[in-house]
Amino acid sequence: MLQYILKRILYMVPTLVLISVVSFIIIQLPPGDFLTSYIAQLSQTGETVDEATIAALKKRYGLDQPYYIQYFMWVKGMFQGDFGQSFEWNRPVSQLIWERLGLTVAVSIFTMLFSWALSFPIGMYSATHQYSIGDYFATFIGYIGLATPNFMIALILMWIAYSVFGASVGGLFSPQYVEAPWSWGKFLDLLNHLWIPAIVIGMGGTAGLIRTLRANLLDELHKPYVVTARAKGVPERRLLWRYPLRMAIIPWISTVGWSLPGIVSGETIVAVVLSLPTTGPLLLRALQSQDMYLAGSFIMFLSFLTVIGTLVSDILLGWVDPRIRYE
């Protein structure tokens, strides 16, 4: 097991390096370097930039050097906790991203748990009660969930909440907790608000999970060993839990791992609509104003998180299904 985990972690390293390269390319993508846009922005507001500052900034980010040296300087800076400067906010990127990333992680994990908790019983019910009204209903909702863009669900939910209850459902905290330091009360308040984004983001993914579990479980349920066990008088409940479910759950767990990029992806856009204080809205702003160090860092960390999440699910899979470890 330990060997398997180590191997997986080792596999992860090139991926992380590649992600950092891609993020660096993204930072470099907009025409002109960020310093030009910074100076342009400053002179727009009427401030003047003295030559010494420009020279210092140029040196700090190695803008006069070739790209690959700039990349290494950027990576080196990251190991020292320096992710560059956000020009829109005029603060170091490292000050801006952590709380937002933390909340993104919270929303993503909560969404994932939510879609697990929901898809497992529904998938099981759909498979054991194939072609029942409940099954058709779950399938129908599932298809709608797959076909509706996340932000549409968010919009519709907000619209209903607004016109029926007269309340807005955006945000992750009640007004009195937004600026408050972390406390037990704030945490409970967060949990109280988390379920709406979780439903909205998890809808599509949950539908996929339900379908996977249903299909796998149906395959198992028609196998001869199940018939044999039933003929021998094993009680239905025990029969289901003991064998077919354990078989059917393996592909399901690997799907869970792959659903993480989708969740993070959906979180980004839903956060914009529901104005959650997570990475989404800030990333969008950063991209719109070409605040590239901020945007690049966000994309890098979001990708890192996804890769790590996938790793965790791989390890989980290796733990549940020993065959995978020896492949």
Partner: peptide
């Protein structure tokens, strides 16, 4: 490996960055 890599990146943030460029 390349496919695994691309699939591990959340798509919408990446799309957003590319189209913003």
């Amino acid at each position: 490996r390349a496919i695994e890599f691309i699939r591990s990146i959340p798509t919408i943030p990446l799309w957003m960055a590319l189209s913003a460029a």
